[in-house]
Design a protein around this nucleic acid. Structure first.
Length: 573
RNA sequence: GACUUGGUAGCUCAGCUGGUAGAGCAACUGACUCUUAAUCAGUGGGUCGAGGGUUCGAACCCCUCCCAGGUCACCA
């Protein structure tokens, strides 16, 4: 329960009571049949004025401009805002002007949901508006919304901008900053466009376990939990790769899954503990085929979101139409540093890192050293979509060895705007090779590499039955959406980014006060007066507390019975 | 995790060298029948993130902690 309501909240609760006293239900149960939307009226009234002679719209009151017996207000529905015009004698044709004078002017507030029936017209200043003939209260709002003002140029004046509040109270954010809804609408389009593309190819959407006994398929620290009935530890998945491959073993030609992954690691503007990944596996294909598929798919996604294949991201215009540049990892390092690392051994790589002032540590093997050079010197330069191919075998235990190049695997990552967006392999389907590669990971783990991958015996058993040659792809959906919506933080593309819990107002339970004889309805008043614990109250002056209670009652216009003086005195014994 | 910036009214923010907590919007009272960042007159509203310390006196100085942003580190 809320303690210590603000002045405005108390006033709204009083308005609620007054509405009930007038016989108006502030939270009616009946369906309200909406026949029109703000956006549609705005777009089409000029062309088809006759179709808007009797409309019903519903939404929140967002602004009010009251001028005596006539008023303008703006209603916000899911599509936008619509100005409404209320005239006292139109909504109150008889003698009783309560609906206008009391209900609309006094008891309704910004944030309340109302429904209106009326006709669309053009004001003298030329704004499309609805002339209200009937007003219905649909839901009363008890907390004041921040009022964001916009002028004619669209400048925002009193913005609701604090990121902490925007993320914690996304419902307020999207109400008063509706332009942010576009990000989430585009996010939805990204996913549905990709899903449509896959379905059109005949591939099947599947669901695989989120609770896993072994957290395989990637290298990351997991979240752990416990199943009571089975009395066993379980992990939230860090990846679903090994399960999707089991389905390829099972005989499906193409399977894909959009799903949340969970990694118990740091949080920053590109990492949230839970994030959405799309993984797809297609039998009888290889990573070269996959590059062409990704080009076609992403172009379609970009067109679905923007209508064209080019997307403005920060200062760069990024073109998702293929084909994309392809560089091997060694070529890319040569291109951006002038150094050929392709023939270097571990000692040579360490020396190169030292020359380039890249920090390394003793646990890093050859593959990891090359990755460090790449991350430090190449990644940020890859603005237009670029495939980096043919990675060192050491860092990629689930990819097939390269068909011609020793020491490399058939893998590509897609980089866009300096960041990795997708990762794909010709999947390793040789069960003996796979077992050896996972055993090497165990050795790395023993050396202190906590990113090393875990052994999964059931997955190896599945491979031993036989998996067809397969290409697999993973795409980080959140980061793709960030790109396609020109956002630089992951929080902006997640409805509810992870946050630390809000500090609870040190609310001592009301019971403590009730136990010493304070009536329940007076506990919030004592809190409001600054007494948050019984001890604090007892340290106070009983006579002053009694007098102040009366003062608060008057000040807050509380309609609760004043406790007798001897009752108050008893609190202090 | 390190460094850094911030946390003051419902919202956005001022607040000087430590000396009675301010503005705009929102709210309340009143005026106003085409306004649109409506206007005009008036009024109320604060645990200055929390706790300790220094001081005659702390929003301000010191310490500890909490929350958020940024940068870096870590992390495919």
């Amino acid at each position: 329960m809320s303690i210590a309501l603000s002045e405005q909240e108390i006033i709204r609760r009083e308005s609620l009571q007054q509405l009930r006293a007038l016989g108006i239900n502030p939270y009616p149960a009946e369906e309200y049949k909406v026949t029109a939307f703000a956006q549609d009226i705005t777009d089409n009234f000029a062309t088809f004025p006759n179709t808007y002679k009797n409309v019903t719209i519903a939404g929140r009151i967002m602004t009010r401009r009251i001028m005596g017996s006539a008023s303008f207000a703006e209603i916000q529905d899911s599509t936008g805002r619509m100005q409404i015009y209320l005239k006292r004698d139109d909504i109150c044709p008889g003698e009783d002007k309560t609906l206008y004078n009391t209900v609309f002017k006094k008891l309704l507030d910004i944030g309340d949901y109302v429904g209106i029936k009326g006709y669309v017209f053009l004001t003298q200043t030329g704004e499309i508006s609805v002339h209200v003939q009937e007003l219905t209260i649909l839901s009363k709002s008890l907390k004041p919304l921040p009022v964001v003002k916009r002028d004619e140029e669209g400048n925002i004046h009193d913005g609701f901008t604090d990121p902490e509040m925007r993320y914690r109270q996304r419902y307020v954010d999207l109400t008063v900053n509706p332009e942010f809804k576009q990000i989430f609408i585009k996010r939805s389009k990204v996913i549905s466009a990709m899903r449509n593309y896959f379905n059109n190819q005949g591939w099947m959407e599947v669901e695989t376990p989120i609770l896993q006994p072994v957290h395989g398929g990637a290298a990351a620290r997991p979240f752990g939990t416990h199943h009571n009935t089975l009395d066993m530890p379980l992990f939230l998945r860090i990846a679903n790769e090994l399960y999707l491959k089991r389905l390829i073993v099972a005989g499906f030609d193409g399977v894909y899954e959009f799903g949340k992954m969970f990694r118990n690691e740091g949080m920053d503007r590109t990492h949230n503990p839970e994030f959405t990944a799309m993984e797809i596996y297609v039998a009888y294909k290889d990573y070269i085929w996959m590059m062409a598929m990704v080009e076609e798919c992403l172009e379609e996604v970009a067109r679905a979101v923007h209508g064209i294949a080019a997307v403005q991201v920060g200062a760069n215009e990024i073109n998702f139409a293929g084909p994309y540049t392809r560089l091997t990892m060694y070529e890319s390092i040569l291109k951006y540093t002038g150094i050929d690392v392709s023939a270097m051994d571990e000692a040579g790589l360490r020396e190169t890192c030292a020359d380039l002032k890249i920090e390394v540590d003793a646990t890093m093997g050859k593959g990891k050293l090359i990755d460090e050079i790449f991350s430090a010197k190449v990644e940020a330069s890859l603005i237009q979509p670029t495939y980096i191919t043919d990675y060192p075998i050491e860092m990629t235990p689930l990819a097939k060895k390269h068909r011609t190049k020793d020491g490399l695997v058939e893998r590509f990552e897609l980089f866009v705007n300096g960041k990795e967006i997708a990762n794909a392999y010709s999947e390793l389907n040789d069960p003996i090779d796979q077992r050896e590669r996972l055993e090497e990971q165990l050795i790395l783990a023993g050396r202190g590499d906590d990113e090393a991958m875990a052994m999964d015996d059931d997955f190896l058993r599945a491979l031993e039955y036989g998996m067809p040659p397969t290409s697999g792809l993973g795409i980080g959906i959140d980061r793709l959406v960030m790109l396609l919506t020109n956002q630089s933080t992951i929080q902006e593309v997640l409805f509810f980014p992870q946050m630390r819990p809000e500090k609870k107002a040190k609310v001592v339970t009301a019971d403590d006060f009730i136990n010493i004889g304070v009536p329940a309805e007076w506990v919030p008043v004592l809190n409001k007066m600054g007494f948050n614990t019984v001890e604090e109250l007892k340290a106070g002056n009983p006579n002053k507390v009694f007098n102040d209670l009366g003062g608060m009652r008057k000040k807050l216009k509380l309609e609760i019975t004043m406790p007798a003086k001897e009752v108050v005195m008893a609190w202090f014994e």
